[in-house]
Design a protein around this nucleic acid. Structure first.
Ligand SMILES: [Mn+2]
Ligand SMILES: [Mn+2]
Ligand SMILES: [Mn+2]
Ligand SMILES: [Mn+2]
Lengths: 219, 219
DNA sequence: AAAATTATTTAGACAAATCTAAATAATTTT
DNA sequence: AAAATTATTTAGATTTGTCTAAATAATTTT
């Protein structure tokens, strides 16, 4: 199956939006891909033809087993390139998504596997997302909660769910990265902001919106 | 100037075919890009519009200063990725061209420059071709001749001009690579074949066709 | 200098990926 | 259960990059 870059981007986006087995809607996919619903309908017909998705008019889209396999390969390449850029070329975590968005389309299993090996077969990318292995299997992520819901006091940052440049840059500015250890000092009921304390730094207060997008686990 | 992948491939091919200031013909370019002359004519109009080439009907194609600059950037990316694949991911020199053909289209100066730095700012690629620097300047290659025209006896291999998988695989099989030192043992006038001797190996005889595509310089 | 050949361009078509505007289906509100 | 709203699809265009077949220009042969 030889897919175009556009087709690969659709398959990946469907994978991302398809939580469990809920069908992905035309509008949601159009929004995710920054395109128009009419374009999504056109592409849905093509991807159905190629047996990568199940699709019936007005019923939404789900990946077939084949489509899921394809999506996992693309996600694997994307996340490995992100690791490469951060670990080897010293890019910052907010810079790599855009570049990986292009690098992920170089389809070569040999390249992908060599890259993985070169990086030490990493299991998570710079944003804490798991990397599928060559067979599409992902390590089950260790249990984690968003910082606003954490009840343990001493925590370690394991992932970031909103990966916008804006949030990542904010976290950089505050010295918060993957692996950062912190303690919850206080919850403020007024706006659900949270005061946290990291080693060797004064405590700081972050908004609920930020806290919701930081995943943590008890240390 | 935002170029498509197709446009980049054209610009690079024109650069490759344009020796000195001879205009590139429609047919030659079509052959190089494995497409049809009619398609080349269409694209020539577009690239002229974008001021990357000079082009008049029936008069052939030459790059403008802007076009040459663009071409050098693409060549730089291509050759740096080839170095990466060989030096870091242990690919063989005959495998990398095809992959670099895709990787070269990821346009990011920051990525390109970081990659170059990471590789130790190499000045030649795995085939002995010079790599333009960030300003498009290439180290003037040290004087070299093809093996069939060499007169010195003790030589070192500096580049390969035909970079087909077939020739590169042949050279692998015979243990000939960049930096290999060899002596010319004999020229056979019958078919212009050449007998060479490398250290720690019995001498071997190579055809004129092979010799023509190996560049050497006195050791 | 004609005639023949080769090179190049033009005309018209097609597939991929997208769009807008209009039509239709599904869902929600009243 | 109508009416109103929202979601989705269809119809018809557009752009990019390509093609084939026919026309024209340039070059070579006779
Ligand atoms: Mn992408
Ligand atoms: Mn990521
Ligand atoms: Mn290319
Ligand atoms: Mn090369």
């Amino acid at each position: 199956m030889n897919l175009s870059i556009a087709e690969e981007n659709y398959v990946k986006a469907i994978y991302k939006l398809q939580e469990g087995d809920t069908a992905v809607t035309t509008n949601a996919l159009a929004y995710e891909l920054d395109t128009k619903p009419a374009s999504v309908t056109d592409m849905a017909k093509k991807l159905k033809e190629k047996q990568l998705i199940d699709y019936e008019k007005y019923k939404g889209i789900t990946l077939t087993a084949e489509g899921r396999k394809t999506a996992l390969q693309i996600v694997r390449r994307h996340r490995l390139w992100e690791c490469f850029l951060v670990d080897k070329l010293a890019f910052s975590w907010e810079e790599v998504h855009e570049l990986a968005e292009e690098l992920e389309h170089v389809r070569s299993e040999k390249l992908t596997n060599r890259l993985s090996e070169y990086l030490g077969n990493p299991t998570v990318d710079p944003h804490g997302d798991p990397i599928p292995d060559a067979h599409g299997r992902m390590a089950k992520p260790r249990p984690q909660t968003s910082l606003d819901q954490a009840n343990a006091k001493r925590l370690v940052v394991t992932a970031v769910t909103d990966q916008s440049v804006a949030l990542l840059a904010f976290l950089n500015a505050k010295g918060i990265r993957l692996g950062t250890q912190l303690e919850i000092v206080a919850h403020y009921e007024y706006d659900n902001s949270i005061e946290i304390k990291m080693k060797h730094a004064p405590s700081l207060t972050i908004s609920e919106q930020v806290a919701k997008n930081i995943m943590v686990r008890p240390v």
